[in-house]
């Protein structure tokens, strides 16, 4: 199969770009730990009231000084509806759904998690700046989807 000289140059450039892009993404993900939200823990969506940590939704300080936030999403809101976390600390969000698929997306941050019933999604984030952050559901979940939101207040320690 004949390849034109310019096409060879063009495709070499393409392949090189591909390898560079993938290396950057891969190193950032697996060496520096920047993987997108995820997790393999399962729960029974009908029985969250007796499944830790969702039996006690809210902010919990852990022994190592970091924070864990357990959130339950259901049409069309979150439990708890308002939380406070300190700035500059590691905050791990654990979210799951009681009914349909939702999302837990904190505007102005890279926390953007799908909330799937039966699955626990996890993401760790450090808030640098204090202030009030808006959380919206960005996965269509029904007629009240556009009202589904909550707030996080990040406070100076």
């Amino acid at each position: 199969m004949h390849l034109h000289k310019y096409e060879k140059i063009w495709l070499t450039f393409g392949f090189a770009a591909l390898i560079i892009f993938l290396s950057v993404v891969g190193v950032s993900a697996f060496h520096q730990g920047h993987t997108p939200a995820g997790g393999l823990q399962k729960v029974d969506p009908d029985n969250l009231e007796s499944t830790p940590p969702f039996d006690n939704p809210g902010v919990h300080e852990k022994k190592d000084g970091s924070y864990e936030v357990a959130v339950v999403a259901e049409a069309f809101g979150y439990t708890p509806g308002k939380i406070q976390v300190p700035a500059g600390e590691k905050v791990t969000f654990k979210v799951t759904s009681k009914d349909v698929t939702h999302s837990f997306s904190i505007v102005d941050t890279n926390v953007n998690m799908m909330v799937v019933p039966g699955q626990v999604n996890e993401k760790t984030h450090v808030f640098r700046d204090p202030g009030k952050y808006l959380i919206v559901c960005n996965e269509y979940c029904g007629s009240g989807h556009h009202f589904m939101s909550m707030e996080i207040e990040v406070v100076d320690q």
């Binding site: 993404v25 891969g26 993900a29 697996f30 993987t35 997108p36 939200a37 995820g38 997790g39 393999l40 823990q41 999302s103 953007n112 998690m113 799908m114 799937v116 699955q119 626990v120 999604n121 996890e122």
Partner: peptide
């Protein structure tokens, strides 16, 4: 990519 239930390796 942003959902649970799929290990990072397979997403990557």
């Amino acid at each position: 990519l942003t959902e649970p239930g799929i290990a990072s390796f397979w997403k990557f």
